[in-house]
C-alpha cells in the first residue's frame, strides 16, 4: 500500500484542476488506496464556508468535502500560518498543522500529486 497525497494549490474557480484533483482522490479512495489531501494558497477557497457557486462556476466542491469520509479520506491538512489570515470560517473537518508539522507531513507519502 502506497500513501498518496493530493496537494491542492489551484483555485477552484480558476480552472478544472481542483475538480480533477478531487476526482483522482475519490478514485484512489474507491480503490482502497490510502489518500490524504492538503490545501494551500488559492485552493483554500474550496474550504470557505457559505460559498454558493452557480452551475456556471462549476461543481460545488465544498459540498463534496462532507462526503470524503465515504471514500476513506480522513485527512485534509491546512497550515495554521495560512488559515489564521483568512477572514471567512473554514470547513470544520480540516486538520491545521504548524509549519513544522506541515513539512513532516509532506515527507510521509509515497506519491504527491500537485494540482
Amino acid at each position: 500500500m502506497k500513501d498518496t497525497l493530493i496537494y491542492l494549490s489551484s483555485s477552484p474557480y480558476q480552472s478544472t484542476a481542483a475538480k480533477e484533483a478531487l476526482d483522482l482522490a475519490l478514485v484512489l479512495g474507491t480503490f482502497e488506496q490510502p489518500v490524504s489531501l492538503c490545501v494551500t494558497g488559492d485552493a483554500l477557497a474550496i474550504l470557505s464556508d457559505g460559498q454558493a457557486p452557480s452551475q456556471r462556476h462549476g461543481k460545488h466542491l465544498f459540498k463534496l468535502l462532507d462526503g470524503l469520509e465515504f471514500y476513506d479520506i480522513e485527512n485534509v491538512y491546512v497550515r495554521d500560518s495560512e488559515i489564521s489570515q483568512l477572514s471567512s470560517p473554514l470547513w470544520s473537518g480540516v486538520q491545521a498543522l504548524s509549519d513544522e508539522q506541515w513539512h513532516t507531513m509532506l515527507q510521509q507519502p509515497a506519491a504527491i500529486y500537485r494540482f
Binding site: 502506497k2 476526482d23 483522482l24 478514485v27 484512489l28 474507491t30 480503490f31 488506496q33 506519491a111
Partner: peptide, 15 residues
Amino acid sequence: GLGSFIDMSLGSDKV
C-alpha cells in the same frame, strides 16, 4: 477510467 491509472501505478515502481 481513472481506476486504470491506479492499477498502472500500483504495477510500477515509480510514477
